[in-house]
Design a protein around this nucleic acid. Structure first.
Lengths: 146, 146
DNA sequence: ATACTTGCAAATGATTTGCCAGTGT
DNA sequence: ACACTGGCAAATCATTTGCAAGTAT
């Protein structure tokens, strides 16, 4: 049970920037760590630990590195459903997710897109909803959502 | 990935009513099944498979029974976070849930309470959101939601 | 009698942990 | 050198599956 940092996360534009941040934090740039980072930059979106691992690195190391990078504010993860968690680089302004329980389709909502909904929830229940870590579930338009 | 039945689920008021439904479906009333049902009626809310099992019945049987009862429309389950799934009897009008990622507090929203938010999501993304199976995550009012 | 059910063991999938050997800095 | 990491095996947690023996109807 962890809270995401409330301040705007700094955006890392390149592998080099992240590597500098890792070093600043007292971390070392090992081969597995570099490969995790490369995989994340290559993914352009979300990837599972297993996908990130490929056939070169141990899954264990991947998890440990992802955890470390998440603490550093470089990485974040989402739980889209029953499958494995999905990891991605932190961008500027967090995307939020919607998953159709009928067809499994994942919709990505750009930052701000869910503000009206968030506002309604805040007004009704005084709760600040975030769909970045756990998505909205329901039925997409194709499956009966409209 | 299964869709919950869209029609208003019939409400079962008593153990006897459920037992009749089970029989109608060709099911048998065994000791473990009866105990699962009793535990659910006793729970008045949500309970994990382990809690329902107690020390008498096998967890395996509990899961199998819950699955069966869910197909019958008697039971439904929620995933409130990282822990085990929680099961409960289907009431009239489904409650929806909100979980605070900071303190873990679970807020139960009575039917209809999230309709404005649902409407906003439908208008913006043509998506019919349901917070009955997977809850809304975020920060409760105490933790910064207001 | 015969299908439906159970118990028990074992498998699964995702993720974590312990521990010691390896290596960036 | 020395703290930080990696590999590898094993543990954990929630849930599922296989199968032979048990039992409701």
């Amino acid at each position: 049970m962890t809270v995401a940092p409330r301040s705007e996360p700094l955006r890392f534009r390149s592998l080099e920037e992240v590597e500098a941040a890792v070093r600043r934090d007292g971390g070392r740039l090992t081969r597995p760590r570099r490969q995790v980072l490369e995989a994340l930059f290559a993914a352009e979106g979300l990837a599972s630990a297993e996908q990130i691992a490929g056939h070169e690195i141990e899954l264990t190391s991947v998890y440990r590195n992802l955890e470390r990078l998440e603490e550093l504010g470089v990485v974040r993860h989402v739980h889209l459903g029953h499958g494995p968690g999905l990891y991605g680089l932190v961008g500027d302004g967090e995307r939020e997710y919607l998953v159709c329980e009928a067809c499994g389709q994942v919709t990505v909502a750009e930052p701000g897109r869910l503000d009206r909904a968030r506002e309604a929830i805040r007004e009704t229940l005084g709760f600040d909803a975030r769909f970045t870590h756990f998505p909205i579930h329901g039925l997409c338009s194709a499956c009966g959502g409209d």
